[in-house]
Simulated scan of single mutants.
Amino acid sequence: MRTPSVTRKPTPKHHPKKAAVFAQQRNPPPPATKLSISDESLSSRGFTLHRTIDNLDLNHLNTVFVAVRFPRRDTGKIRVALEHTDALLWVEYEKTKRPVAFARATGDGVFNAIIWDVVVDPSFQGIGLGKAVMERLITALLEKGITNIVSYSEPRVLGFYRPMGFVADPDGIRGMVYSRKQKRKE
């Protein structure tokens, strides 16, 4: 028996400024993926990679969040969130001893992970730090056997994720976000 074809409405190209878009990684690279920027190259340029929150100044991290148009966050809540994070990476600029790039992932530790808070200080954008952090975070998740990796991001930055194997709306799956701003019909 043939299934009737379904005509889908075209997806509008305009997204609200604060829209959340889920991008799922398809055909993830094997854990031994070659990095676009080596640790040695980062170090020679004055950057240090960190994989724990040790020595991470949360006030400075918050400054980077605000610089990329994230809302200012309570540093106590940031600390709690980071303590419940499965994997994270941040890049410190040696001259200032401040974080300039950051990303983290949460999940069930077995099957699924969501990447959050990918930020690069605007003064350091365009030199590969975001890609360096993402490649290493994805590799860390793949090495744990986690292959369903989703990135939570705004539509304006989807082009950054596509070259790393992420696609929006795979297989017609649509993510949903709970919103407290629900309109009541009375």
Score class of each variant (00 low, 15 high):
M1C: 03
S5K: 11
T7Y: 02
T7Q: 12
R8W: 09
H14K: 12
A19I: 01
A20Y: 02
Q24N: 04
Q25M: 15
P29R: 10
P29S: 13
P30A: 12
P31M: 02
A32H: 12
A32M: 01
T33I: 14
S36R: 14
S41V: 11
G46Q: 06
T48N: 06
N55T: 13
L58C: 07
N59L: 08
N62P: 08
A67H: 11
R69F: 07
R73F: 01
T75K: 01
G76C: 02
I78C: 03
R79D: 11
V80E: 14
A81S: 15
E83N: 14
T85F: 07
T85H: 05
A87E: 15
W90G: 06
W90Y: 13
V91I: 15
E94S: 13
T96Y: 09
T96G: 00
A101N: 05
F102S: 08
A103M: 08
R104D: 04
R104T: 05
D108A: 01
F111W: 11
V118G: 01
V118I: 13
V120M: 04
D121L: 05
S123P: 00
Q125C: 09
I127R: 03
E135A: 04
L137R: 07
A140Q: 13
L141Q: 09
L141V: 06
I146A: 07
N148Y: 11
V150F: 05
V150T: 15
S151I: 15
Y152Q: 07
E154Q: 13
V157H: 01
L158R: 08
L158N: 11
G159T: 08
F160Y: 14
M164A: 13
M164F: 15
F166G: 07
V167H: 05
V167L: 09
D169R: 13
P170M: 09
I173H: 11
R174C: 04
R174V: 15
R180C: 01
K181G: 03
Q182I: 12
